[in-house]
Design a protein around this nucleic acid. Structure first.
Length: 412
RNA sequence: GUGGGUGUAGCUCAGCUUGGUAGAGCGCCGGAUUGUGGUUCCGGUGGCCGAGGGUUCGAAUCCCUCCACCCACCCCA
């Protein structure tokens, strides 16, 4: 048997209705914030991600699906979409368009990791980028917007975490300080942290090992090292969030794994997701455009929702919806009559299923299993009189209604 | 890349310790009901027991190898 390849999966009904719901909500919210959709290619030149995401990141060093094209060029399935969006922004001179460029996207990304709960090799992200301003007001608006999506998608019980990771001026100073502290303290930490202390000291701050926490508490906070530009920026973001009464927690130890993040970073976590508890991550990336070859500075901020994870968290308790009406014709003449009737009702916007074979008993059985709200019986009597038997499947009540009566009853 | 867990019917699982050639519930199909679903009752469909090898008169069960899936680490959405 041929199966879906490791880390990929088929999304089947009824789950796909949840996916559609999440995507529809996102599009509505994006639209209300005047974000417009951008669709970039699924694969790009490998260099784009190597330079955009960061040569030393895990994504680039061990997780990319990279292959050689027939002409020898190196291509890569996108592991994330921000680099592509910035590439398109530069390529098409979107900086020449008026105002902040507000773009959103949704679609599959690819990373070759070991799959586990909430992690797949092909996974889906819904994201947005606001490019062209470094105003903290944009940061707050972006965070507000993404929380709006989560709420309207039906997610509750989540926690928003924010932080500032500084900029090219202040972060190096902090990292230097951190390295110094770790020289004395690293030996008491877990094995992973000892390794991180050398390779990526910021990661030590994010360690989840319980025994390490007392020591990690004593390490310096990046917030104490923010420079004269970053500190007021972060304060303003917080002020704007407070103005909106948006609940969040400042987590100075929140670090992100992609090189391009600077200043504001944020994340939303949810309890029902297993070890991969992050539903979305995002942040500011003011230097990214330049590092991808833009001659003009194009500061930006964006986020990406892990759609697989959001769907997982929202799916339970999502109501299954059956057809509005199940039409059960009795015999061939009735079927022809019922088919026209079904078409007209569908044109009116109702979801209508019609039995194309089988006895009445069987049809009602199916109407019940499919969760139809009403069943309509169309037989010789009904065709002759124009009065149909309409059955409320929940109560079992059956009434005789004419053609207009059908619309009226199922329309409520 | 590393560690742990699990593989038996479409699904959830029992059986494995103490080898004797497969079970339950749910689902699906049909009947009780010639134009009336849900509850109930009756019947039926359905599995080379993950794959290969070994031990044995005999293996779902014991041993070995492999594979797949899941969870976790790393890291991230």
């Amino acid at each position: 048997m041929i199966r879906a390849v490791k880390g990929t999966r088929d999304l089947l009904p009824p789950s796909t209705s949840v996916w559609n719901h999440v995507e529809a909500v996102a599009r509505q919210v994006f639209s209300s914030y005047c974000y417009q959709e951008i669709r970039t290619p699924i694969f790009e030149e490998t260099q784009l991600f190597a330079r955009g995401v960061g040569e030393e990141t895990d994504i680039v060093t061990k997780e990319m699906y990279t292959f050689e094209d027939r002409d020898g060029s190196s291509l890569t399935l996108r592991p994330e979409n921000t680099a592509s969006v910035i590439r398109a922004f530069i390529e098409h001179r979107l900086d020449q368009r008026p105002g902040v460029q507000k773009l959103y996207y949704m679609g599959p990304m690819f990373r070759r990791e070991r799959p586990q709960k909430g992690r797949y090799r092909q996974f889906f992200q819904i994201g947005a980028e606001a490019i062209g301003s470094e105003s903290p007001a944009i940061d707050a608006e972006v965070i507000e917007m993404v929380l709006e999506i989560l709420g309207r998608a039906g997610l509750s019980g989540y926690q928003a975490l924010i932080n500032s990771v500084g900029c090219a001026d202040c972060r190096p100073l902090f990292i230097a300080r951190l390295r110094e502290e770790l020289k004395d303290k690293a030996h008491a930490l877990c094995g992973d942290c000892q390794r991180r202390a050398a390779s990526n000291p910021l990661r030590v701050l994010d360690c989840k090992v319980e025994a390490d926490q007392p020591i990690i508490e004593t390490l310096p906070s990046i917030l104490d090292y923010l420079c004269e530009r970053c500190r007021p920026h972060f304060a303003a973001v917080r002020q704007y969030l407070d103005d909106r009464s948006i609940p969040y927690e400042v987590k100075p130890r929140l670090v992100r794994g992609l090189d391009y993040y600077m200043r504001t970073t944020f994340e939303v976590v949810h309890g029902s997701l297993g070890a991969q508890n992050s539903v979305l991550g995002g942040g500011r990336y003011d230097g990214l455009a330049e590092s991808l070859g833009s001659k003009i500075p194009s500061p930006g901020i964006g986020f990406s929702i892990g759609e697989d994870r959001l769907v997982m968290a929202v799916e339970e308790g999502f109501p299954a919806r059956g057809p509005d009406l199940y039409v059960a014709p009795l015999g061939e003449p009735a079927l022809r009559h019922a088919a026209v009737l079904a078409r007209d009702l569908r044109r009116q916007g109702f979801s209508v299923e019609m039995a194309v074979e089988g006895k009445l008993k069987r049809s009602l059985e199916l109407a019940n299993k499919l969760g139809a709200r009403f069943a309509l019986i169309v037989g010789d009597n009904e065709m002759e009189s124009g009065v149909y038997a309409l059955k409320d499947m929940a109560s079992g009540d059956q009434s005789n209604v004419n053609r207009a009566g059908i619309t009226e009853r199922i329309g409520n």
